[in-house]
Simulated scan of single mutants.
Amino acid sequence: MENSRRFKILIADDDNISVILLTNYLKNIEADFIIARDGEEALTLFEQNTDVDLILMDIKMPKLNGLEVTKQIKSKNPHTKIIAETAFAMVDDEKKAIEVGCDAYITKPINGERLVTMVKSMLGV
């Protein structure tokens, strides 16, 4: 797929294996990845990279959880696309994620094909 520019994707996840899997699943998308290891770092990196095209947001992270980070990011830029991800899926997690502004929700272990479809849809590729 030809694209005129590279995308910028912020991955907010404190788990190294998850970060490796996410970047590997998305390797065929022309993108630069920015990695945040906790909620505070995710906010800082978002503020330094306001042109981020998409954020993959782990819900359970140190310092600030993904729901709180999402609320703060959406208050600064409501158009930022955010996909919530969680390994600890409770019945109302998806509802909570959507309520704070996440555009989509995916559970771990992540289905790579589903993730790629979701990301491409959000990026318009």
Results as ranks from 00 to 15, higher is better:
79 H>S: 06
79 H>L: 12
86 T>N: 08
100 V>C: 05
111 N>H: 14
92 D>M: 06
35 I>K: 01
31 A>I: 09
90 M>I: 11
97 A>R: 03
46 F>G: 00
70 T>K: 03
52 V>H: 06
50 T>W: 07
38 D>R: 01
66 G>P: 04
19 V>G: 02
20 I>Y: 06
87 A>M: 13
53 D>I: 12
78 P>Q: 13
42 A>S: 05
46 F>R: 00
68 E>I: 05
96 K>N: 11
63 K>G: 08
110 I>D: 06
56 L>A: 09
86 T>F: 02
2 E>A: 13
50 T>A: 08
75 S>L: 08
17 I>W: 13
119 V>G: 14
86 T>R: 04
46 F>E: 01
68 E>Q: 13
112 G>W: 03
79 H>T: 02
22 L>C: 06
79 H>F: 14
83 I>R: 01
36 A>D: 05
56 L>Q: 06
123 L>R: 10
9 I>P: 01
115 L>E: 06
92 D>I: 11
103 D>K: 05
58 D>L: 15
8 K>S: 09
12 A>C: 04
41 E>G: 02
104 A>M: 08
46 F>M: 00
25 Y>Q: 03
13 D>H: 09
75 S>H: 14
57 M>I: 07
54 L>R: 09
16 N>D: 11
45 L>T: 07
1 M>T: 12
5 R>I: 00
67 L>T: 08
2 E>K: 08
95 K>W: 08
106 I>H: 08
30 E>G: 10
23 T>E: 14
77 N>L: 11
26 L>E: 04
104 A>R: 09
117 T>E: 14
102 C>E: 06
39 G>Y: 00
52 V>E: 10
83 I>C: 04
8 K>M: 05
63 K>P: 03
116 V>G: 04
18 S>I: 01
113 E>P: 14
22 L>W: 03
56 L>P: 04
102 C>V: 12
91 V>F: 13
102 C>N: 06
20 I>S: 15
32 D>S: 14
61 M>W: 02
89 A>I: 11
104 A>Y: 15
88 F>N: 11
105 Y>P: 05
1 M>H: 13
40 E>Y: 10
